[in-house]
Simulated scan of single mutants.
Amino acid sequence: MKNTFLFLSLVGFQILFSQVYKNSEPFAHTYSIVAKDSITGDMGVAVQSHWFSVGSVVTYGKAGVGVVATQSFVNPAYGPKGLALMAEGLSPNQALSALLANDEGEMYRQVAFLNNKGEVATHTGSSCIEEAGHRQGKYFSVQANMMLNNTVWDAMANAFETTEGTLSERILEALKAAEAEKGDIRGKQSAAILIVKGEATGNSWEDIIMDLRVEDNDNPIAELERLIKIHKAYDFMNRGDLAMEAGNSKKAETLYLNAQKLFPDNLEMKYWYGINLLNNKEFNKAHTLLKSIFEEDKNWKTLTARLVKSKLLLISDSELQTVMQL
């Protein structure tokens, strides 16, 4: 039954899919990683290249299914079609083999698939520009082509395996390790990271955990790291908003403060922390913070009065007047 399923899948797919190498295909030589967090089940793919907007052609992912990195002379079809095959139940190796068998340009491709079980499949074509190679490990694969040195993929793998932390932090360390080995022979320009949930929620807007791109930058990995930090801060903010809507101002205060610690110069994060101080009746502390914000931008004072009407600020009229006079 299993062999029949695979045969029918491949026959049907062959009718729909034929790949031929074309000179017009994106020239995204690069290094990348696909990986799964064994604890949360989240799956991620990240990439860096000396190519504009590399994330738009290399990284693909779908919650509950897997992630794909397709690079070198990129055939973007490996992304959506690979995910579709894995969603049908094919393993990464079966899915990748099916695509390669119908691709006359397979010798130019470098592709990595990972599914929600953490299984991986990787292909480095024989005509990928040196230095090119890949290394697989438990729940991950790293791959690179057109590198200055052939030490890049081993360095990436070692960094991912030895780093502790969240999936995004471990992936970021793998990218940094590639740069430490001099990375792309041409230099650096863009980077991207995409993380999806291991199990689909049924709501597409909840399935993507992180989707960040650096399209054009002198130091894309450093910029990506900055964006990941900001993303984490705003995740605290979003969770704080939910706590605030639920009427749990103490929890919201803690979450907003965590966000503020990560992004201390952001006025909005300071502001919502101040609003929660008011809701928690910590007036003196709130007044000091809000006064400094109002002095920098008076529009935040205007917004404060409006929050009372929306019942997001629960203070008396007399206390509101005090705040308005700060």
Rank of each mutant, 00 (worst) to 15 (best):
residue 172 L to H: 08
residue 63 A to V: 06
residue 123 H to T: 00
residue 306 R to D: 05
residue 237 M to W: 07
residue 168 S to M: 05
residue 209 I to K: 11
residue 12 G to L: 15
residue 62 K to Y: 07
residue 59 T to P: 08
residue 150 N to T: 08
residue 149 N to M: 12
residue 208 I to C: 13
residue 127 S to E: 09
residue 43 M to I: 14
residue 11 V to A: 14
residue 157 A to L: 03
residue 24 S to G: 09
residue 140 F to R: 00
residue 143 Q to H: 14
residue 255 L to I: 04
residue 80 P to C: 14
residue 65 V to F: 06
residue 47 V to W: 04
residue 248 N to Q: 14
residue 16 L to P: 01
residue 129 I to N: 07
residue 256 Y to G: 00
residue 317 D to N: 14
residue 249 S to D: 09
residue 148 L to R: 07
residue 137 G to I: 00
residue 146 M to F: 10
residue 82 G to M: 01
residue 302 T to W: 11
residue 99 L to Y: 01
residue 154 D to H: 09
residue 137 G to K: 03
residue 202 G to D: 12
residue 288 T to M: 13
residue 272 W to M: 02
residue 176 K to S: 04
residue 124 T to V: 05
residue 86 M to Q: 03
residue 146 M to L: 10
residue 182 K to R: 11
residue 290 L to N: 10
residue 2 K to M: 10
residue 3 N to H: 10
residue 232 K to A: 08
residue 205 W to V: 01
residue 178 A to V: 02
residue 275 I to P: 00
residue 24 S to V: 14
residue 153 W to Y: 12
residue 1 M to C: 03
residue 227 L to C: 02
residue 309 K to C: 02
residue 261 K to H: 10
residue 229 K to F: 03
residue 80 P to E: 15
residue 221 I to W: 00
residue 163 T to Q: 12
residue 76 P to I: 03
residue 261 K to A: 09
residue 267 L to H: 10
residue 162 T to W: 01
residue 268 E to W: 07
residue 289 L to Q: 11
residue 298 K to V: 08
residue 195 I to N: 01
residue 39 I to F: 10
residue 146 M to K: 02
residue 104 E to R: 14
residue 107 M to R: 12
residue 271 Y to H: 08
residue 152 V to Q: 12
residue 159 A to Y: 02
residue 217 N to L: 03
residue 240 G to E: 06
residue 174 A to S: 15
residue 56 S to W: 10
residue 93 N to G: 11
residue 85 L to W: 01
residue 143 Q to W: 00
residue 140 F to M: 05
residue 42 D to S: 15
residue 146 M to Q: 03
residue 29 H to E: 13
residue 236 F to S: 12
residue 319 E to D: 13
residue 24 S to K: 15
residue 256 Y to Q: 05
residue 253 E to K: 07
residue 255 L to E: 02
residue 82 G to D: 06
residue 302 T to C: 04
residue 187 G to V: 01
residue 276 N to K: 01
residue 201 T to D: 12
residue 125 G to C: 11
residue 105 G to C: 09
residue 151 T to K: 13
residue 259 A to I: 04
residue 28 A to G: 07
residue 134 H to S: 15
residue 108 Y to L: 13
residue 164 E to D: 11
residue 9 S to Y: 07
residue 8 L to C: 08
residue 231 H to N: 15
residue 263 F to N: 05
residue 307 L to D: 02
residue 244 M to P: 00
residue 63 A to L: 05
residue 232 K to G: 02
residue 247 G to R: 04
residue 308 V to M: 02
residue 279 N to V: 02
residue 213 R to F: 05
residue 124 T to W: 00
residue 76 P to A: 06
residue 326 L to Y: 15
residue 54 V to F: 04
residue 99 L to E: 13
residue 137 G to D: 02
residue 15 I to H: 14
residue 236 F to R: 13
residue 288 T to G: 05
residue 61 G to D: 03
residue 126 S to V: 09
residue 69 A to Q: 06
residue 86 M to N: 06
residue 280 N to I: 00
residue 161 E to W: 12
residue 281 K to D: 15
residue 251 K to H: 01
residue 93 N to R: 11
residue 23 N to V: 13
residue 4 T to V: 03
residue 291 K to D: 04
residue 6 L to C: 07
residue 182 K to W: 04
residue 123 H to A: 05
residue 144 A to Y: 01
residue 310 S to C: 06
residue 305 A to V: 03
residue 53 S to A: 15
